[in-house]
Design a protein around this nucleic acid. Structure first.
Length: 752
RNA sequence: GCGGACGUGGUGAAAUGGUAGACACGCAAGGUUUAGGACCUUGUGGCCGUCAAAGGCUGUGGGGGUUCAAGUCCCUUCGUCCGCACCA
C-alpha cells in the first residue's frame, strides 16, 4: 500500500474538521453505557495556551479517549475561569475593558485548544464571567447567607490609609502601597466570610481515605485543617487556649496578641500604644520573617487558677489574634517560644510536674480559618446583598438575580471598590422596606467560581438552579480530576466544602466530588529551570506543533516522564517520538496478507495488555514505550498483517488521534473513524510462551539463565537438574547444597 | 521546625521483594550516492581482562539491618524539590 510521506500539517487540520463536522465529541446520554467524568482544572484565559496547559490536557485526553474506546460514555468538558485580577490589571494597563480582554483571550485560546486535537466537549462549557454562570454564584451565596455560612466578619487586612482600601499581598512593594506609596498597615476590616470551619471536621480525611487522592493532598489538607484538642482556661477574665493544661503550674505569665480585646480596653501607657501601633504596621510577611520576639508589659496581672499566684500579662505579636483565643498561658519551661520570650524579658521559668488539673472547658481548635471572600475589585461576581440603614443586610430577592456587573464602570484604582463609583448601579430601593439603600460594592473571590464550576458543566443551560440535580446524580461524582499541586490547599479544599454544603441543601447525595485526583508535574525549560520569559527558556507549543505536528507533541508529552514528575523539555528527544510516528506511518507499506507466528501474537497481545493497563493507571510514559517495543518488532518483519496494523492504530489512537485516523482511512477509505472503534482485548493464551527463561542464582548471585519448556516449569526437580547441568552454575556448586529456593518460572537459587 | 515527594548511566527514565538500567535521547564505530528532519547495523553503567573473545569484580546518595534474594522492606545519615509555618 502506498501512502506518501508523513506530513503532519497536511492531515491534522483535515481530521479536526471532520471530527467537528461529525459532532463526535458532544456528550449524549446513553443508558447502556457507564458514565465516566474526566475533568481537568479549568484554565484561566490568559490569552496564550502554554506547554503547561498541554501537559494538563493532553494526557487527560489520552485517558478519556482510552475510556471511550473501552466502552464508557465519557464526559470531558472544559471552560474558562474568567474572572480575576489579571484581566483588570491588563485592562488598566492597556485601556481595554476586562470583559473584552477576557472574551478575546478565550477566543484565541479556543483555537489553540483545537490544535491540540482533544475530544473535549465544548457544548458543556462554562465561562465564569458570564451572567449565566455568576447568577448561580449569587444564588449559592444567598443560600449560604441564609444558613449562616456566609457572614460579615472582621479580619486583619493589608490596608492603605491614603487610598482607604484593602490591598492584595502582591500589591505591596516593600511595605508600601503600589499605587500611592503610602505605608501599608494591618487593619481590622469588615468583610464577607464563608464559615468553612464549620465543616472542618467533615473535611478531615479519614484513614483509610474515602477517595483515591494523592497522599500529599490528604496529608496536606489534614495538616492545614490542623485539628488540635485542648482546653479553655480562665485567668481572671482572660481566656486562654492550651493543648497542655497539665503544665499550668509552670505558667508564669500570659501573652496576648496586640489585637486582643484585653489590649483594646486597657488604659495604655505610651509604651503599649507604640508597640501596638508598630505591630499593626508589620505586614503579615514581615511578621513571618522576623522571628525575634518582641513585646511589652501591659501593666496588669492575672491569677493563675492552679498556683494562685499573680502572673503578668504581656503583649506580643508572636501570639496570633486569629488562633485559639488570641491569648496564651506561657509555660517557658516547656515551650521553646515562651522560653525565648521569658529569657529576653527576664520572666521567671519554673518547672512543671505535668500533673496539674485545672478547671476548664475541653475544646477543639482548628488551624483552618474561615474563608475571606470579599474582593474590592471590579472584575468579579457582585455580592448580591443590599445594605439598608433600617433593615441591615438584605439579600437580593432570587427573582432579581443576577445582579449584573455593570459594563461601564471606572475600574481604574480610586481607593474604593470600583462598583461603588457607579452611583446609578449602587443606589437601590431596599427590597424589604422600600427605603433608600445601597448595593454591596464588593465582588467575590474567584475561588468561589472554581469551587463548583464542574457541577455547572453537567447542565450548563439549566435555569432553575446552579445545576440540574438529576443530571448531577447521573454524572457526578467526577471519576478522575487532573490538576496541579498548587491547588492542594486552596481550590480542592473549597470544592470539597461546597460539595458538603450542596449535600446539606439536598441537591446531591455524595460526600466527595472527585473519586480520584491526580496531580501533574511541571515541564521545565530545556535548561532545567522553570520556564519564564525573563530567562528566555519558554518553549511555545505552537512552535513545536509547527515543527512536528500536534500528534508528536502529544506523544512526547506522554512519553517524556511520568505524569507526576517535574523534568526539563528536551528539544532532541521529541525527534525520537516523531521518528516513531513516521515509522508507524511507513509501516502501512508493509501491510499484507500473512500468518501470524506464535511470537507475533505474543508480542501483539503483550502490547494490548500493557498499553491498556497503563492507560487505566495513568502511566502514560510506559504505555508509549510498550508501543515502541511492539513497533520495533513489527518493523523488523518483512510484512505485517492488517490485523496487526489495525491493532496498532487502535492502541495508538488515543495518543495520536490525527495520524491514526488518516492511516485507518488509507487502509479502508470507507471505514468509520478509528476513534469509534473498540479497544482491543488481549487474550491471555497468547501471553504464555512455550519456553520460559529462568534465572539461576548461587547464594543469591546470578550465574546463568536457562530456558525451560513451559510444561516442565512445575517440576522443581527438572528445573534443578537443568540448572545444575549449566557449566557456569556448576563451577559454583562445589560445596554441599544446603537449600534450594525455586520460584516457579522465574528464578532458582542454590544456597551452598 | 512540621508535612509530603524523591535520590538509579552522559540525559529523560524502566523495574507485583526474584536476571537493575526496559523504552528513548545523546554518543561512538561501520554500512548505504542518502532529495525531502535521512536510513540501516552494531556498541554504549563502571572497573579488571583480552589482538579479539570468553570471563571476572563491582554497581541504584552514604552507613547498618531483615531475607535464600533488596533500587524496592526496616533503622540511621546526607542531600534535593514542593507545600505550610511563632497554631499555644
Amino acid at each position: 500500500m502506498k501512502q506518501g510521506r508523513y506530513f503532519a500539517d497536511k492531515i491534522e487540520a483535515k481530521w479536526r474538521e471532520n471530527w467537528k463536522k461529525q459532532n463526535s465529541f458532544e456528550f449524549k446520554d446513553d443508558p447502556k453505557k457507564q458514565k465516566y467524568y474526566n475533568l481537568v482544572e479549568l484554565p484561566y484565559p490568559s490569552g496564550d495556551l502554554h506547554l503547561g496547559h498541554w501537559f494538563a490536557f493532553v494526557p487527560a485526553d489520552v485517558h478519556a479517549r482510552f475510556k471511550k474506546m473501552s466502552g464508557f460514555n465519557v464526559f470531558y468538558p472544559n471552560g474558562f475561569d474568567a474572572f480575576g485580577l489579571p484581566a483588570e490589571n491588563a485592562a488598566i494597563k492597556r485601556g481595554i475593558h476586562p470583559r473584552d480582554w477576557t472574551m478575546k483571550n478565550i477566543e484565541v485560546m479556543r483555537t489553540q485548544f483545537d490544535i491540540m486535537g482533544t475530544m473535549i466537549d465544548w457544548t458543556h462549557s462554562t465561562i465564569t464571567c458570564l451572567p449565566d454562570f455568576y447568577r448561580w454564584n449569587q444564588w449559592i451565596f444567598l443560600k449560604m447567607f441564609e444558613k449562616g455560612i456566609a457572614y460579615r466578619g472582621i479580619a486583619l487586612s493589608n490596608w492603605c490609609p491614603t487610598d482607604q482600601t484593602v490591598l492584595a499581598n502582591e500589591h505591596i512593594e516593600a511595605g508600601k502601597c503600589w499605587r500611592c506609596g503610602a505605608e501599608v498597615v494591618q487593619k481590622e476590616v469588615e468583610q464577607w466570610f464563608l464559615a468553612i470551619t464549620k465543616y472542618a471536621e467533615s473535611l478531615i480525611w479519614k484513614n483509610p481515605p474515602q477517595a483515591d487522592w494523592p497522599k500529599q493532598v490528604i496529608e496536606g489538607q489534614n495538616n492545614w485543617i490542623g485539628k488540635s484538642e485542648g482546653m479553655l482556661i480562665d485567668f481572671s477574665g482572660i481566656e486562654v487556649f492550651t493543648t497542655k493544661p497539665e503544665t499550668i503550674d509552670g505558667a508564669t505569665f500570659l501573652v496576648v496578641a496586640p489585637e486582643h480585646e484585653f489590649v483594646k480596653n486597657l488604659s495604655k501607657t505610651k509604651e503599649v500604644e507604640d508597640y501596638v501601633l508598630a505591630a499593626s504596621k508589620k505586614t503579615e510577611m514581615e511578621r513571618k520573617e522576623d522571628r525575634t520576639k518582641s513585646g511589652v508589659f501591659s501593666g496588669k496581672y492575672v491569677k493563675n487558677p492552679v498556683t494562685g499566684k499573680d502572673v503578668p500579662v504581656w503583649i506580643s505579636d508572636y501570639v496570633l489574634a486569629g488562633y485559639g483565643t488570641g491569648a496564651i498561658m506561657a509555660v517557658p519551661y516547656v515551650d521553646e517560644r515562651d522560653r525565648e520570650f521569658a529569657q529576653k524579658f527576664n520572666l521567671p521559668i519554673i518547672e512543671t510536674k505535668f500533673n496539674a488539673k485545672p478547671k476548664g472547658e475541653k475544646t477543639i481548635n482548628y488551624h483552618l480559618r474561615d474563608w475571606s471572600i470579599s474582593r474590592q475589585r471590579y472584575w468579579g461576581t457582585p455580592v448580591p446583598i443590599i445594605h439598608c440603614e433600617k433593615c441591615g443586610l438584605v439579600p437580593v430577592p432570587e427573582k432579581d438575580l443576577p445582579v449584573e456587573l455593570p459594563y461601564n464602570v471606572d475600574y481604574t484604582p480610586k481607593g474604593k471598590p470600583p462598583l461603588a463609583s457607579d452611583e446609578k448601579w449602587l443606589n437601590v430601593k431596599c427590597p424589604k422596606c422600600g427605603g433608600e439603600a445601597k448595593r454591596d460594592a464588593e465582588t467575590l473571590d474567584t475561588f468561589f467560581d472554581s469551587a463548583w464550576y464542574y457541577y455547572r458543566y453537567v447542565s450548563p443551560e439549566f435555569h432553575k438552579g446552579p445545576f440540574d440535580p438529576k443530571e448531577v446524580a447521573k454524572l457526578m461524582p467526577v471519576d478522575v480530576y487532573f490538576g496541579g499541586s498548587e491547588h492542594t490547599l486552596g481550590h480542592t479544599l473549597y470544592a470539597r466544602f461546597f460539595t458538603k454544603f450542596f449535600k446539606e441543601l439536598g441537591l446531591l447525595e455524595f460526600d466527595e466530588f472527585a473519586k480520584k485526583r491526580i496531580q501533574h508535574g511541571v515541564i521545565l525549560g530545556p535548561d532545567g529551570d522553570r520556564m519564564s520569559k525573563s530567562r528566555g527558556n519558554v518553549v511555545s507549543p505552537d512552535d513545536v506543533v509547527k515543527e512536528y505536528g500536534a500528534d508528536t507533541v502529544r506523544l512526547y508529552l506522554c512519553f517524556m516522564m511520568p505524569y507526576e514528575a517535574t523534568s526539563p523539555w528536551s528539544p532532541t528527544a521529541i525527534g525520537g517520538v516523531y521518528k516513531f510516528l513516521k515509522r508507524a506511518w511507513d509501516l502501512l507499506e508493509k501491510v499484507d496478507k500473512g500468518e501470524l507466528s506464535r511470537q507475533d501474537l505474543s508480542k501483539m497481545h503483550q502490547a494490548i495488555k500493557k498499553v491498556g493497563v497503563d492507560l487505566e493507571n495513568l502511566a502514560f510514559n510506559t504505555a508509549v514505550s510498550s508501543l515502541m517495543i511492539w513497533l520495533n518488532h513489527l518493523t523488523s518483519k518483512k510484512t505485517v498483517t492488517s490485523e496487526e496494523y489495525k491493532t496498532l492504530l487502535r492502541l495508538l489512537a488515543p495518543f495520536a488521534p490525527h495520524i491514526t485516523d488518516e492511516l485507518w482511512h488509507l487502509l479502508n477509505p470507507n471505514a468509520n473513524s478509528v476513534h469509534l472503534e473498540d479497544w482491543p482485548v488481549f487474550q491471555s493464551k497468547y501471553l504464555i510462551s512455550d519456553s520460559v527463561n529462568i534465572a539461576v542464582q548461587v547464594n543469591g548471585k546470578l550465574r546463568d539463565a536457562i530456558v525451560v519448556k513451559r510444561e516442565f516449569i512445575k517440576s522443581q526437580e527438572k528445573v534443578e537438574n537443568e540448572a545444575k547441568s549449566s557449566q557456569k552454575v556448576a563451577k559454583y556448586l562445589t560445596s554441599a547444597i544446603k537449600k534450594v529456593i525455586y520460584i516457579e518460572g522465574k528464578i532458582i537459587n542454590f544456597v551452598v
